[in-house]
């Protein structure tokens, strides 16, 4: 008798659904992400080298801003990443709160420091661009202030997560804060339209025409893609470490510890016993 007949009322799970199910398994996620990370770093390195070569070596200076326009190739991708990572973090936070999936909560919490780093780079590089262009490092302009609020939101999410001892409770509280903070994203994006700001309006539009020359647009887009590989590689690295830290006493973790690690001294073992 043939037993391999698919019942019509039970459709076979698609490869994508199976893949998502597998991602939820910590040992599988740890192994899979470990293979992916070196390739992501490699792609980041190649794209960054290419983008910076086109932007800093081959690209022209701006007729109005002069050489300072070259700061754009780090400032704009960082600013875009700061918004994108927040949106991703909030999306993962929503999934965490609704479906309580552990891996999404780990990914959400691992996104926060990377997002904060990009926000810091965007603010610092923007400030360094502002001095020769506007004549000042900082103004309490709507775009700059809302971006600073974004940094505080990232720091708030990180602080809340680290303030609660139980990691799953901590992640849920931090995810809720991340969701509330989403309201800041449209404020940042539309700030240059809603208010009369010193920060110029968006030069690049994916729906209409961009007011930026192709010789500057291409390195900018390449850098924008490069930082996405950075985010992916860094996010997976952080998620792997969080998994190790949380599953310290689980059996699967014992199998990933390299056998050639140096033995720990007796003083450290004694300290551990004292706890």
């Amino acid at each position: 008798m043939n037993t391999n007949v698919n019942h019509p009322s039970k459709p076979r799970k698609s490869a994508l659904v199976l893949f998502i199910h597998k991602l939820g398994s910590p040992p599988w996620f740890y192994a899979f992400s470990g293979k992916l990370i070196p390739w992501l770093w490699l792609l980041f390195g190649i794209m960054t080298a290419w983008g910076l070569y086109l932007g800093l070596v081959k690209g022209p200076a701006d007729y109005l801003q002069g050489e300072s326009v070259r700061i754009m190739y780090i400032h704009v991708p960082s600013a875009w990443m700061s918004w994108m990572i927040y949106a991703v973090m909030a999306g993962l936070g929503f999934i965490t709160l609704v479906w309580r999936i552990r891996i999404t909560e780990i990914l959400a919490m691992s996104s926060a420091p990377i997002g904060a780093a990009f926000t810091l780079v965007a603010l610092a590089s923007g400030s360094l661009w502002g001095r020769p262009t506007w004549g000042t490092y900082w103004v309490w302009d709507a775009r700059l202030t809302s971006e600073l609020v974004l940094l505080f939101l990232y720091l708030g999410v990180m602080g809340l997560y680290n303030a609660i001892d139980e990691p799953r409770k901590a992640a849920r509280a931090a995810c809720l804060l991340a969701l509330v903070g989403v309201v800041n994203l449209p404020i940042i994006h539309f700030s240059v339209k809603w208010w009369n700001t010193l920060h110029q309006p968006n030069s690049i539009s994916f729906t209409g025409g961009s007011s930026i020359d192709a010789s500057m647009l291409w390195p900018l887009l390449i850098m924008a893609i490069a930082v996405k590989f950075y985010y992916a590689a860094n996010l997976l690295s952080r998620a792997r470490v969080k998994l190790l830290e949380q599953d310290l006493r689980k059996a699967w973790v014992r199998n990933v510890v390299p056998r050639d690690l140096p033995r720990v001294g007796p003083d450290v073992v004694h300290r551990d016993r004292g706890n």
Partner: peptide, 26 residues
Amino acid sequence: VLLWCALAPLVRKRVALRDIRRLIQL
């Protein structure tokens, strides 16, 4: 900033692996 952000998980991983190794030894 980006280098620090990329290296931080490597340092934490070393610490986590050391803790696991210590537990196994115990």
